[in-house]
């Protein structure tokens, strides 16, 4: 399904565009791109591709664009860690004329680290004559369709929640088993750079969590998860501006976007609703949170 926010112009219908998973070209072979790439290192470049199906007639009807000459397919690779974006731009008319409907993108060696976000967009490259209906996209850059974002982890620990084992006593911190450190000024800041689970290496529970001890992990993982999500919700709710979260342009890796995902995933609600519940009925918020995240003893969910 196409991912489109409410825009001031007509966008492509879901029926007009279909996306597929990402593939990696290794020599002459093309293999499915896994969520966690094994054996990758900085010396390797990455050649990625994905197939896109565009029903030209349906696309024209839904967007109102009868001239596709300025429409572009844009593959993007964003690396939050290196703060780099790679693009591959193909004219839609050229793409439609091909027998192979693949979009490809090359990522030079050494330019990405930790994890990358992949997506394909369809957008206007240049201004077009404004149509009488006033709704058809005419402004350069107008987004017409966007694929879901695919996150791929390139380095070993990138897929884990940002975690660090430290001696709380050496850091002059109280002897808790864990602590959640959340530091950000803006909801658009990187989640991974803003949030850290600190495990106390001096504490019998903290140190065994750090070493992924199965018994301790199974016993407290759900409480830990609950604690983390509660702390995150609180910190982000305190920063929520009156404009609301959904109206801000948020990158996939931003703390605002990750919190939105967490709210939907665990609580089945949008973030603004969750923040309002937390403010108006704290006790019910706790129950909803506990029900959504789940309390269990045993293997973590």
């Amino acid at each position: 399904m196409a991912r489109i926010r409410a825009f001031p112009h007509l966008v492509a219908s879901d029926a007009s565009v279909a996306w597929s998973g990402w593939l990696r070209r290794v020599g002459d072979a093309v293999v499915a791109l896994p969520t966690q790439v094994e054996g990758w290192d900085y010396a390797q470049s990455l050649d990625l591709e994905t197939e896109v199906w565009v029903d030209a007639q349906e696309f024209v009807e839904s967007t109102g664009l009868h001239d596709l000459s300025e429409v572009r397919l844009v593959a993007t690779v964003d690396c939050p860690s290196t703060n780099q974006r790679h693009l591959s731009i193909t004219p839609l008319t050229e793409f439609l004329a091909r027998s192979q409907r693949h979009v490809t993108i090359h990522i030079p060696s050494g330019s990405v680290a930790n994890d990358i976000n992949l997506a394909v967009h369809i957008a206007l490259a240049s201004d077009m004559q404004r149509q009488e209906d006033g709704l058809t996209a005419s402004e350069a850059g107008a987004r017409l369709a966007s694929s879901p974002t695919t996150r791929v982890y390139l380095e070993g620990s990138a897929s884990r929640f940002p975690t660090e084992a430290i001696s709380f006593s050496a850091a002059q911190m109280e002897e808790a088993a864990w602590s959640i450190r959340i530091r950000f000024d803006d909801l658009r800041e990187s989640f991974a750079g803003s949030v850290r689970l600190l495990l106390n290496s001096d504490h019998p529970v903290g140190s065994r969590l750090a070493s992924m001890d199965e018994t301790v992990y199974g016993a407290v993982a759900s409480f830990l998860r609950l604690d983390i999500i509660r702390a995150l919700l609180g910190a982000v709710a305190d920063h929520l501006t009156e404009t609301g979260l959904d109206q801000l342009p948020l990158d996939e890796d931003s703390i605002g976007a990750v919190m939105s995902e967490l709210c939907v995933h665990y609580l089945g609600k949008d973030f603004v609703s969750v923040a309002e519940l937390r403010r108006s009925d704290p006790a019910r918020f706790e129950r909803v949170l506990q029900e959504g995240v789940g309390i269990s003893i045993g293997a973590p969910r």
Binding site: R5, P8, R72, V74, T76, I89, L124, A140, G141, A142
Partner: peptide
């Protein structure tokens, strides 16, 4: 920044 919502400025 608000323009980056509906517009893909990378194409500019």
């Amino acid at each position: 920044r608000y323009r980056t919502g509906p517009l893909m400025l990378d194409l500019y």
